[in-house]
Simulated scan of single mutants.
Amino acid sequence: MRLLRKEEEKRREANRRGEVGVSSPEAMATSVTLEDIRAAQSRIKTEVIRTPLVLSDAASERAGLSVYLKLENLQRTGAFKVRGALSKVTSLTPEERRRGLISASSGNHGLGVAYASSRFDTRCIVVLPENANPHKVALLKKMGAEIISHGTTSDARQHKVEQLSQESGYVQVHPFADPILIAGQGTVGLEILEDLTDADEVYVPIGGGGLISGIAVAVKQQRPSTRVYGVEPERSNAMWEALRHQGPFALPRVETIADGLAARITERLNYALVRSYVDDIVLVKDADIIEATLFLLEQAKVLVEPSGAKGFAGLLANAKRRGKAVAVVSGGNITLKQIEALWPG
C-alpha cells in the first residue's frame, strides 16, 4: 500500500510538470484536486476579498428560477484573476521571485499578476495584444507593470512570453494552464458551496479555461450532483471545439465583444479537467452577452464587463436550467464610455 501511494505521488507530480508519457486526459485530470484548492485558499485568503454570493431578485425574475450572483467584479483588481496569480506567486521561492514574473494577458490576468507581484516587491512584465483594452492598459501601468504589445491572438502572446522567458530567465505565470494557478481560481468554487450548499447549477465564463477548471474540480469533488456549465461566445469557442475534436483545437480566428475571453486555443490540462468535470458548454451570441451586461447593470445594479456577464448570458440561453443557479460574475473592468458604446441606438 505504501509503495502504491508513493507511485501515485510520483504520477501526480509528473502530471503537474507535463512530462512525456503522462498525457492521457484521465491522467492529466488528476493534476488539480480539492486538496490543492484548499491549500491555495489557505495561502491566499489574507490577500483576496471573499466576494459575496447574492440572490438577485431581478436576475431570478428574468430567468424564472433562483439566481445567485458570485460577484468577482468586487475582487481586488476587479476580476477573479488575482486569485490564481496569488496562488502561483505564493508558491514560488524567493529566488524565483527575484528573477521576475512574465505573463501573456488580454488585461485581467495581467492585472492579477501585477497586483500579486507588487505584494512581494517582484518585477512584472505583461505581454498584451496590440489592440488591448485601453482601460486595462492604464490600470496595468498604474500598478507598475512593464508592458510589451505583441500580436492580436492569445497563442502569439504566449509564444512571445516563452521566448522572453528563455532569453531572460523570467518565471512564467500562464493565464490558464498551470495547476497551481487553477487551484487558486478554484477557491471561487469553494466559496460558492460554503455559501450555497445545495446549489443545483453553476455557470462559469470560459476564455482559456482556468476558472472553470478550478471551479469544476472544487464543486464536483464536493457535490457531484451540482451541474457545472461553461459558457463561451459562439465565435470564440476554443473549449467547445476541443471537446468536439477530443483535444485542443486552434480556432482560425476569434471574434467577440468579450475581450477577456478571446482565447484562440485551450491547453491539454484545461481540456482534460473540463472533459472530466464539466457537464456541458453553452454557446452564446455577442448580442446575448451585451444584453446580459446591460441587464445586470440596469436591473441588478451590478457593474460588469461583457466577459464577466457571460455566465448569466449562458444561464439565460440554457433551456434546461432548473433549481438554484449560480452565475459567476467574473470581472467588472469597464468604463462608462465603454458601457455607453454597448447601448443600442
Rank of each mutant, 00 (worst) to 15 (best):
K220N: 08
Q221K: 11
Q221A: 10
Q221D: 15
Q222M: 14
Q222V: 10
R223M: 02
R223H: 11
R223E: 03
R223F: 00
R223Q: 07
R223A: 05
P224N: 00
P224K: 00
S225A: 13
S225C: 04
S225W: 03
S225V: 09
T226H: 06
R227P: 03
R227C: 08
R227W: 10
R227D: 00
V228Q: 02
V228T: 12
V228F: 02
V228D: 01
Y229K: 12
Y229E: 02
G230P: 00
G230Q: 09
G230R: 11
V231H: 06
E232P: 15
E232F: 03
E232C: 11
P233R: 09
P233V: 06
P233H: 10
P233N: 09
E234F: 04
E234C: 07
E234H: 07
E234M: 08
E234P: 02
R235S: 06
R235Q: 08
A238K: 04
A238S: 15
M239H: 07
E241T: 03
A242C: 00
L243R: 12
R244T: 13
R244Y: 10
R244A: 14
R244F: 09
R244G: 07
H245S: 06
H245V: 03
H245L: 02
H245G: 00
H245E: 06
H245Q: 12
Q246Y: 08
Q246K: 13
Q246A: 07
Q246N: 14
G247N: 12
G247Q: 10
G247E: 11
G247I: 10
P248V: 02
P248Q: 04
P248Y: 01
F249P: 02
F249Y: 14
F249H: 13
F249M: 02
A250Y: 01
A250K: 14
A250L: 15
L251S: 07
L251H: 07
P252W: 15
R253W: 10
R253S: 14
V254A: 05
V254W: 08
V254H: 09
V254S: 07
E255S: 14
T256W: 13
I257Y: 13
A258S: 15
D259I: 14
D259T: 15
G260D: 11
G260W: 10
L261Y: 04
L261E: 07
A262V: 03
A262F: 06
A262N: 06
A263M: 05
A263K: 06
A263V: 03
A263I: 02
R264T: 11
I265Q: 13
I265L: 08
I265Y: 01
T266Q: 12
T266F: 04
E267R: 09
E267H: 10
R268F: 11
R268D: 13
R268Q: 14
N270I: 08
Y271F: 14
Y271L: 06
A272T: 09
A272C: 11
A272N: 10
L273W: 04
L273G: 05
V274Q: 01
R275V: 00
R275H: 09
S276H: 10
S276W: 01
Y277Q: 07
V278S: 02
D279E: 13
D279L: 12
D279V: 13
D279P: 11
D279H: 15
D280S: 12
D280E: 14
D280V: 01
I281G: 04
I281S: 05
V282N: 05
V282C: 06
V282T: 08
V282L: 13
L283D: 00
L283I: 04
L283E: 01
V284Y: 03
V284K: 01
V284H: 04
K285W: 08
K285D: 15
K285V: 05
D286E: 07
